[in-house]
Write a protein that binds this DNA or RNA. Structure first.
Lengths: 203, 203, 203, 203
DNA sequence: TATGAATGAGTCTTCATTCAT
DNA sequence: AATGAATGAAGACTCATTCAT
């Protein structure tokens, strides 16, 4: 009947709550939401099952809090980026760097990415989280370009397209393994394309 | 454990099996795999729960067979397309048509798309199905272009990028509704980009 | 997701459902609603826990169905009484018979009575059941009196008072065991009182 | 297991214990024993959950102590009555006053009454408490009548019957709301009946 | 004395799968 | 080939009580 979720005040309690989030989010990312049960989470976190429900409304709540705590670092590590200055002649290089980053980041937490993308497609709140961050990411990139004297002409749309191109490229490289696909060529084509998008700014 | 899954030979039995696939796949697409139970499927198909397990190894099996039977129509309706002839000056028009198609198709079975995309990210066999079809789609498009005298220079990669661009565009239009995004401009930009990809073939 | 409670069609299934009601209702009556769990009920009924939920929405449902099935026999066995003819000079005797009946009936299912009375005071549906039957009981008695030429003057109220008097008397005799209370005297007083209630009909 | 339940000696501790009783008994009366948990009680009392078990053996203990502390005021407020003097010609009036009292008292703590009556039927100690007080109430009334020169002939039994009559009448008026029942007539009948009980004393 | 974090057994309920007919 | 009843393991969640501080 008491449904006030405890907000832990003692230091040790706070740590415990964080352990639960960590354990829960890890397991969910690794095995999927439906394949992870609360007992496992508790065990992994080194606590009893009961305590879980003092800090979280339900299992779902653990996922959401985990997403909010770790999601950005895993899925949008570039969100914090700012004050990037580059020579326009180095735009090319910047893009290659981003791609590299993206791929290596994905590879580290491959399974997590897939699990969460799965939920983006099946759960409203996860979707909301993801699309919100995607939007922020678009803005971040847009601002970087503006800072580097790109004209603000349809910039929003262009950045979005650029992100899509990079996303697809990286995804292809990481997962598909279509044997007949030459990724070097593809990368070059994508970069060329992005440069075309911003051709007015790169002269 | 008897795992001889019956292959129905009599007409009525075949119909029964198909009803189960249809009912099961529909429900899974509508409500999700974990939110659909076999009792529901049987009821919707108008059969007993027991019979389900004479035609299918398990619940998962229904999904996979459903995917194989209906997936193409829902997710890759253009796969069957061939013998498309177009004037190079109408390439533009062709792309707009494709986008239109894509969007209207998605809108019809919006929920199904999301549910299945969710599983693409969480289930190996669904993923395999999806990526295989994607590859076929790439080939189909590539062949169409070749048929229309496009040079076969990195065509595979280019088509893949093109598909990604269209995919992202349509997805954005259908789901995101980022208020600040101008979809007409975005569409134009995407088409312009695709044309750049094939600039050597469109002179 | 399927919440259609099965209505058993096969004979054996019907028997099973009845066994569950019987076992459940018995246990609840014996040990109390909160002290009876579904596993016990299933075990007592000789079925698995799962089947319980195919026939009943929840544990509460078992109680209610049990009440409807067995309640009348246990708590209101006189409800079925009709066509009672008596000489007015035997009214006295009739009352003594009723009291005897009431007491012996209570004694047989003493614990059940208490458990259900407990729920009459704490659960709306059980209360509704009880008060409705009480009303019916009042009507039954009223009709018997009318059949025996009692005037229909405030009869409803008089019968209700009479029932209360008998109820209290019997309850006192069965449970209280107040040492200083002389039950013979009390019985005589109660009967005298009831006769006063109907004095106009008994001349 | 340490079961030395502390008897608080310090003023502050006593107050704390009383707060717990008050909070616990209130909640139990309002929501029922099984729907009240110790965390709620502690919160309502403004103390920690741990401290509860320093003053009380268990949750049940809170109920019992609450009953002993507040029960009389709520359920038997007339117990303290004494030195009531009345003219025999006003006996009628006295009874009407009692009925009025009874009803208004019940209405104030309707839910509490029901909850406790529920436990009277399901818990031995609550039953014991209740029946003991009922006995005391009988004695109180008996003494009042003796003080007013009623003969002590079967007085004990008569008072008990009288109490039952009043009890049923009031209960009917407060809860049942049987539409066809005329409560004025019923009240008059009851009073008439009681007067018949004491007819030898009222000449 | 007091706190509130922690425990873990216990409860209801679901559901893929099997079985008797 | 078919039915639908039956199984029982597994899961989410609760809560009286105890423990560490």
């Amino acid at each position: 009947m008491i449904d006030n979720i405890r907000k832990p005040k003692q230091q040790r309690a706070i740590e415990k709550k964080e352990k639960i989030i960590e354990a829960g989010f890890n397991l969910i990312c690794k095995n999927g939401y439906y394949n992870t049960n609360t007992a496992e989470i508790a065990k992994e976190a080194g606590v009893s099952t009961g305590i879980v429900y003092q800090y979280f409304k339900d299992k779902y709540d653990i996922l959401i809090e985990g997403l909010e705590k770790y999601g950005d670092d895993i899925f949008f590590p570039m969100l914090k980026t700012k004050d990037v200055k580059f020579e326009k002649s180095d735009f090319d290089k910047l893009l290659r760097q981003m791609i590299k980053h993206y791929i290596s980041n994905h590879k580290v937490s491959n399974v997590a990415h897939e699990e969460i993308m799965s939920m983006v497609h099946s759960d409203k709140r996860v979707a909301r989280y993801y699309y919100k961050r995607e939007l922020e990411m678009t803005n971040t990139l847009k601002n970087i370009l503006v800072d580097n004297n790109f004209k603000d002409e349809d910039l929003y749309e262009k950045v979005h397209i650029m992100m899509g191109l990079i996303d697809n490229l990286c995804h292809e490289i990481i997962y598909h393994k279509h044997n007949d696909m030459n990724y070097d060529i593809m990368t070059n084509l994508v970069i060329e394309n992005i440069k075309v998008l911003f051709k007015n700014d790169l002269v």
